[in-house]
Nucleic acid binder design. Structure first.
Lengths: 241, 241
DNA sequence: CGCCATGTTGACTTTTCTCAATACGTGTGG
DNA sequence: CCACACGTATTGAGAAAAGTCAACATGGCG
């Protein structure tokens, strides 16, 4: 009925995305120090270089992961050989979704990353016995569900520039956790990854970027950093479903 | 690494979709009778006729709902006036996703429905204090997340017949909860709804249905019931990503 | 009996995809 | 220091697919 886009961050909601574990720079996490300690006890801190496989779809799912630092991509190999990128994971995001005991997709680091690795049985045990802690997880997963729904809407768009604009807006939202209202978007992933994420061809992504630049909505400082030039025009395109 | 599609229903997984509340026909729910009682105490049972609005996007989110009987659609009105259907909800499904205290989409009954309406504050309280019960919710939401990701993959397909086939396969999975291995798919929703769900035009859905029928993969007993004729061929199309 | 929502069909337009050739750029090895 | 090679990105031309628009059919319900 009112504005559909992201309002401020009123904290009043049930099922609201909440931070998780200790972030890289030590912002408040919403967890009590006791809960953080509980998780830290069962978690293993892991550092990985860029482009390292974390797990493969179909392999036994023994852990849930939380990104502490860096960026991870979750993707799926389709029978045709195509790669669909399901999600980009940033600090504080959870990943490691499983079904029937096996991971449903692959995970690979994009940048150097630091992860928290939580063994599933222990995590389940801890969650069952700490309702508040589990509630944070529930909120987090619910937030991911909203994101996933939003992406379905994105994928419903037929026009490549619009999809790309929505993607940039998404990335901006993420980044704003750290740095509010900056018109600069970091894009640590490759354009092929973006193409896989948006369901476009690499060529399509290139052309869409070119079109956005030609219309002077965004500019590119370099391959991995975009800048929104015309915020109103950009927002109009994002919302022009 | 192995088969990516739905295997049997080994119950070994963490984060596996679980039933919720009392179903129409009284199958086991996975909840203890005590937990069911707890939920029943705070829930209000509501009956609605078909095509009744349940809530609108942007209105204050006071409740979470569980479908007991019938089918519900969750959708969003886009600025352009287009309607995107985010989800079809069947018995045992939860809905009522909110953000910042307001519903993120609209919900409307498709058939006559019976719902459980759970007040958010009471539900949150109950969940925090019953880790096992909350774990069922977590599993359920996680299952919905998997579904949402699957739909993003679906939306990434460019070919209308393929999308439609995946949709039918989805609907078949749902129905199989009740009646295993039947090749008959009930489609209580309109084709416009399907179009909205798949991100296609109504005309596109019509033509895609016609193509599936022409290729003798499926036939239609009537407007709301499809029958898979050529299971292998159909599966091939579904998987032909 | 006729209205209104829903669905069907055809002609034409728009858009992206595909394929392929070409460029960029970073790290390696000569 | 340069050259090459590989992953990545750009650009062009042509083909394929769905969208749009509009006319028409169907079907349930008052």
């Amino acid at each position: 009925m009112t504005k559909p886009s992201s309002a401020g961050a009123r904290q009043k909601s049930f099922l609201k995305g909440l931070p998780f574990l200790s972030p890289a720079a030590g912002q408040p996490t919403g967890l009590t120090s006791r809960q953080r300690e509980t998780l830290t006890r069962i978690a293993l801190r892991i550092r990985l270089p860029a482009r390292k496989m974390i797990y493969r779809a179909g392999s036994e799912a023994g852990f849930v992961f939380a990104v502490a630092e860096g960026v991870v991509k979750g993707y799926r190999e389709l029978p045709s050989g195509k790669r669909v990128v399901c999600a980009f994971l940033f600090p504080r995001d959870l990943f490691g979704l499983s079904e029937n005991g096996v991971y449903v997709n692959c995970a690979q680091s994009i940048t150097d990353v630091t992860l928290h690795r939580l063994p599933l049985p222990e995590l389940a045990h801890v969650l069952r016995h700490d309702g508040d802690l589990q509630f944070h997880f529930l909120s987090k997963i619910t937030h991911e569900l909203r994101q996933a729904q939003r992406q379905s809407i994105l994928m419903g768009r037929r026009d490549a520039p619009g999809r790309l604009a929505m993607f940039l807006a998404m990335m901006l939202d993420r980044a704003e956790s750290d740095d509010r209202h900056s018109p600069v978007v970091d894009l640590p992933m490759t354009k092929s990854d973006i193409a896989g994420f948006l369901g476009l061809s690499l060529a399509g992504v290139t052309r869409a970027f070119a079109e956005l630049e030609r219309d002077e909505l965004v500019s590119f400082d370099d391959a991995h950093q975009a800048r929104i030039l015309d915020v109103p025009g950009f927002s109009r395109l994002v919302a022009a479903l």
